[in-house]
C-alpha cells in the first residue's frame, strides 16, 4: 500500500521530464534546419533594405560604422554608404521590443533628412500595432521620408489621423529608438 505513492512521487515527474526532453530535442532538431533559412532571409531583406531606405539603386561597398556603445540604444547595425568620393547617407539597423515581440527595422538618413524606413520583421497583430508596421512600415516611411531629422517625431508619426495613439508599447519603442538613431546621425555628421 505504501509503495504506490512513493512510486508516483518518482514516476510522475520522471514521465513528465522524459516527455519534456523528447519535446526539447524535437524542437531543437527542427530549429537547426529552420533557423539558417530564417536568418538568411533576414540578411537578404536587410541587404535589399539598405538601398530601399536610401532611395538609391547602386552604391559602393558600405563601411561598417558600428560601435559596441550603440547596442545600449537598440542599434544593431550602422552603415555608411558612398558613391566614389560622395557620401550618400547612413542606414541604421534597429531591434526594439514592441507589444508583440521584437521589431527589426532600418532607418536611413541622407542630407540631414530621413531618407526611408523599412520593417524587416515584427510580431504585432495585424489589426492593432501591426497597422503602423504593415507593408514593411509603408505608413511610417511615407510620414518621415524627406522630413528634417530634427522634426518632432511624435508629430510626424501621428499625422492628422493620430495613427500611433493607443499603441503605446510599440509607439514608445519606435519613437525612442528612432530618436537614438537621429541623435547618433547628428553626432556623426557634425
Amino acid at each position: 500500500m505504501a509503495k504506490k505513492p512513493l512510486n508516483n512521487f518518482i514516476l510522475l515527474p520522471l514521465f513528465l521530464g522524459v516527455t519534456c526532453l523528447i519535446s526539447a530535442g524535437l524542437i531543437a532538431g527542427v530549429n537547426s534546419f529552420t533557423e539558417p533559412v530564417i536568418n538568411q532571409r533576414i540578411i537578404d531583406q536587410k541587404n535589399a533594405g539598405y538601398y530601399k531606405v536610401l532611395d538609391v539603386t547602386t552604391a559602393d561597398e558600405p563601411v561598417d560604422k558600428y560601435e559596441d556603445s550603440l547596442a545600449s540604444k537598440n542599434i544593431t547595425g550602422k552603415k555608411e554608404f558612398s558613391s566614389g568620393a560622395t557620401l550618400i547617407g547612413y542606414v541604421y539597423d534597429v531591434t526594439v521590443k514592441g507589444y508583440g515581440g521584437d521589431i527589426l527595422y532600418q532607418v536611413g538618413f541622407k542630407d540631414g533628412k530621413f531618407s526611408g524606413f523599412n520593417v524587416i520583421t515584427h510580431g504585432e497583430t495585424s489589426t492593432y500595432g501591426g497597422i503602423v508596421l504593415a507593408e514593411s512600415g509603408r505608413l511610417i516611411d511615407e510620414r518621415i521620408k524627406g522630413q528634417d531629422v530634427e522634426s518632432d517625431l511624435l508629430v510626424l508619426l501621428n499625422g492628422s489621423d493620430n495613427l500611433t495613439v493607443g499603441k503605446s508599447v510599440t509607439r514608445t519603442a519606435l519613437i525612442n529608438s528612432l530618436t537614438n538613431c537621429v541623435n547618433d546621425y547628428l553626432t556623426e555628421v557634425q
Partner: peptide, 8 residues
Amino acid sequence: MVMKAYLP
C-alpha cells in the same frame, strides 16, 4: 518554426 522559415 516551419511556417516562419518557409511561409513567412
